[in-house]
Design a protein around this nucleic acid. Structure first.
Length: 213
DNA sequence: CTCCCGATAT
DNA sequence: ATATCAGGAG
């Protein structure tokens, strides 16, 4: 159930963001779906900019799933150390590569449900890969999308899966991918978690957080 | 719910 | 010193 008030708010907000961020793309450097999958797993709790620094060399050394399994796990841990959670992420990537080889002929499946079944891949990562590598309509609810959706008042839910469902009701499928990018761009540039720049924000008129200050 | 975990801005 | 960074698994 989405109230008319929220539907109207969403229309105004996304109209402004659409104009503000006309050409949105993933900031994660990648040249194919497999690289995007690895980069997205690595991006958990860490900025795209730092992932890109690591993947610049990583993607020269590891080309296909087999490459990640061929080295001792300690070597992969060292290669991604600076990103944090390096033990978890190494294990996830290795298991994910085994699963790609055993269940998907070494290819990244172009299917949301199949993606979420891979090690280290939850709804957010699956959405990023589905939307950006395969143009499958999806909304990736990351920390920015969550924060802005709650601050603006596009949803009253705190659970990412519920936020995703709420946003999908507010937008046509054709805009699912771009809408998450708009919120992410706005979250990084203006509605910054540590210190929101409300003075520079163009959607304060429709923002619950701003109007309740 | 807790744990994983380094880099960075404030 | 502390919060936060394009989360996911157990």
């Amino acid at each position: 159930m989405t109230s008319k008030k929220i539907i109207n708010k969403a229309d105004k907000v996304f109209q402004i963001l659409r104009k503000e961020y006309p050409d949105v793309v993933t900031q994660l450097d990648h040249e194919n779906p497999f690289e995007l999958l690895v980069a997205t797993i690595l991006s958990a709790q860490c900025t795209d900019a730092r992932v890109n620094i690591v993947t610049k060399d990583l993607f020269k050394k590891y080309i296909i799933p087999k490459d990640y399994i061929s080295v001792p796990v300690e070597e992969l841990e060292k290669d991604i150390f600076s990103l944090g959670f390096y033990r978890q992420k190494s294990k996830s990537i290795r298991n994910m590569c085994v699963e790609l080889i055993e269940n998907h002929c070494g290819e990244v499946p172009a299917d949301f449900d199949k993606l979420t079944k891979l090690s280290g891949v939850g709804r957010k990562t699956a959405s990023v890969v589905a939307a950006n590598a395969f143009n499958i309509p999806a909304i990736a609810v990351d920390t920015h999308v969550k924060r802005l959706s709650n601050l603006i008042g596009l949803t009253v839910n705190k659970n990412p899966e519920k936020i995703e469902a709420d946003l999908k009701e507010l937008l046509p499928k054709e805009e699912w991918k771009d809408s998450s990018h708009w919120l992410i761009m706005h979250g990084r540039n203006i509605c910054i978690a540590r210190r929101p720049k409300c003075a520079e924000c163009k959607i304060t008129k429709y923002c619950d957080y701003f109007n309740s200050k």
